[in-house]
Amino acid sequence: MFRTSRKAGSRKAGRRSPLASVSLIALGLMLSGGAYALVSSSTAVADTASTATQATVEEGEKLFQANCATCHGLDLQGSDAGPTLIGAGEASVDFQVGTGRMPLQANGAQAPEKPVQFTEEQISALAQYVGSVAPGPAIPEDQYLDAEGDASRGAELFRVNCAMCHNVAGAGGALTEGKYAPALTGVTPTHIYEAMVTGPQNMPVFNDANLTPEDKRDIITALKFQENAVSVGGHPLGSLGPVAEGLFLWIAGMGIIVALTVWITARSN
């Protein structure tokens, strides 16, 4: 959608061309067609999700065999290349595949976030398949994802349980041997919740006995508050704390000052 509307803007500049009207019509068709396709596909997802569960699981199984079984085993039993997914649960699949971490592109210290490889319905099918083999953490319910809980309590829980790895401002931080806790800005509430219940990679699990669903809702609320809040002091410099501030002072602040000292002492011509 975004791309097509940008195209419209660039076409405007070329209105004098004899092809202008033709391309405008074509564009109109593309736009309306695209919109139609989008609407119809989203309704299709809703349909399949509600009705054809068995079909979805089979679809998921096919996708799994084609894309995941090499590492995780044909029966989810795992291999040297990947852990077992028995009991991993739908939440785990939705998180790993939905943030693009899986399928893994290359072996490294940890699986990085990258562009998502599957459509929403494919991810859902995969999740349902894995969930159907053995029970595990389920996709969180919407009531805990609205980010309208108690931000103050959430922030406190976040500081105690999460900030040591992810930084108080959710800017991320380093772990051992090249691993890292990723930044939390721009992560959807669903994925945050799923990460807490499943403990992806080296992140510990925060089960419901540790942080209740209500606690998790509060944490999401605090994160979303921080993410959407205006940075009152001005540019936050990456929320990385004194290192970023010191670097900025030396480079920008000192840079300006030294440039000015040169100007002040340079002889006027």
Binding site: V160, G199, P204, V205, F206, N207, A209, N210
Partner: peptide
């Protein structure tokens, strides 16, 4: 920070409690 006690059964593998 709540101060609520923890049961052994609450602590699943891979968990960490502060």
């Amino acid at each position: 920070p709540d101060g609520t006690p923890i049961r052994a059964s609450d602590v699943t593998i891979g968990s960490v409690f502060h």
